[in-house]
């Protein structure tokens, strides 16, 4: 692909219509094959829209009703799609969307809290559902969700922090579970979880900052682990943790910005993992989120701990001491 043909500015209106059209592609097989991600996808799309300054681009009432249709009464949580099973991932997505729409009153908060708290294991880590898969991702999800619901005190916070601490590796990073290799996405969830718990003393900021800064490749993109390829989604995972550690200046923001912009589809909108690849709403959101952290002009501030609009988190009194780059003026 010719470098000159790659986009160098954010194609906001294309991305807005790309996200708006996602829910309308019911004649596309891929749409149905991704039903298990539906609530996540709405959260990703909506967050990107908020950050791009188009919070009203989706039909709010339709979205809320869809979330309600994903409620699983027996379990007290949310499934990704009606008829599917409950999972902590989708439960967080539902909460995040409702927070952005200021509509938490539409769900049974005490039951949701009970469901989430029930997933904490004796070791302190959280499971994703009743079948018991554990992962530091789920711990972050639980902490994020409970803090948004104002019920953080109902879980064992020390236990959770202690488990995360045991996942820390000598390179400063964190893995999925005890013994696992450091991975940028797990670094994000562990550092953000510790930030919410006010336990950042468990992070070796200089070592982790070093490891994170070495994720940047000569083309500007970031990878998830040493000697791997770059990918737009890692832009967010890495930047989020760096913002929390006040280390974003340790990488070349300009080159990263150019890399993310080069991954846009200039015809149909959306952002992909690498230039020239198929776009999806996941990479679109994390690309836009990363650009916001990098101070890209015209975007709304993003809270890197929650991956939600900063003003909403601030209004709830949950803002932590992260440090994004100053927003540039066009």
């Amino acid at each position: 692909m010719n470098r000159e043909q790659l986009p160098s500015t954010l194609l906001t209106s294309l991305h807005v219509s790309y996200i708006q059209n996602l829910g309308k592609s019911t004649d596309d097989l891929a749409y149905h094959l991704t039903a298990h991600l539906r609530l996540n996808a709405i959260y990703w799309g909506l967050t990107a829209l908020f950050v791009m300054g188009h919070p009203d681009a989706l039909e709010k009432e339709d979205v809320i009703q869809y979330i309600q249709s994903c409620w699983v009464e027996e379990a007290g949580g949310f499934a990704p799609h009606p008829g599917h099973d409950v999972h902590i991932l989708d439960t967080l997505s539902a909460i995040q969307i409702l927070v952005m729409y200021d509509a938490l009153d539409r769900i049974d908060i005490p039951r949701v809290v009970k469901f989430i708290v029930s997933l904490q294991q004796p070791s302190g880590v959280f499971a994703g559902d009743s079948f018991g898969e554990i992962d530091t991702r789920f711990t972050y999800i639980a902490i994020n969700a409970l803090s948004l619901l104002g019920c953080l005190d109902q879980m064992d916070r020390d236990g959770a922090a202690n488990y995360i601490k045991q996942c820390r590796n000598f390179d400063g990073g964190f893995g999925r579970c005890i013994g696992a290799e450091s991975h940028s996405a797990q670094v994000f969830v562990c550092v953000a979880a510790l930030a919410i718990l006010d336990r950042l003393d468990e992070v070796d900021g200089d070592t982790l900052g070093w490891w994170l800064s070495e994720r940047q490749l000569p083309n500007g993109g970031l990878n998830g682990r040493p000697e791997k390829l770059e990918d737009v989604c890692y832009s967010f995972w890495v930047l989020s943790a760096m913002s929390i550690l006040h280390k974003i200046p340790w990488i070349d923001a300009e080159k990263l910005t150019a890399f993310i912009l080069s991954c846009q589809d200039p015809e149909k909108g959306g952002i992909s993992d690498r230039p020239g690849n198929m776009t999806d709403v996941f990479h679109t959101n994390f690309g836009v989120a990363a650009l916001s952290i990098l101070g890209y002009p015209g975007l709304v501030d993003l809270d890197p701990v929650y991956c939600m609009p900063a003003h909403i988190i601030e209004a709830k009194g949950l803002q932590k001491g992260w440090k994004n780059l100053q927003r540039r003026v066009e």
């Binding site: 004649d27 596309d28 097989l29 990918d231 589809d265 015809e267 992909s272 993992d273 690498r274 020239g276 690849n277 198929m278 776009t279 999806d280």
Partner: peptide
């Protein structure tokens, strides 16, 4: 999507693909 090349299809090709996908 991870590692999937973007392809540019003509409107006819898109329509044909959608038709093929109907039964699936």
């Amino acid at each position: 999507m991870h590692n999937v090349k973007r392809v540019h299809l003509s409107p006819e090709a898109i329509a044909a693909k959608k038709l093929r996908e109907q039964s699936k």
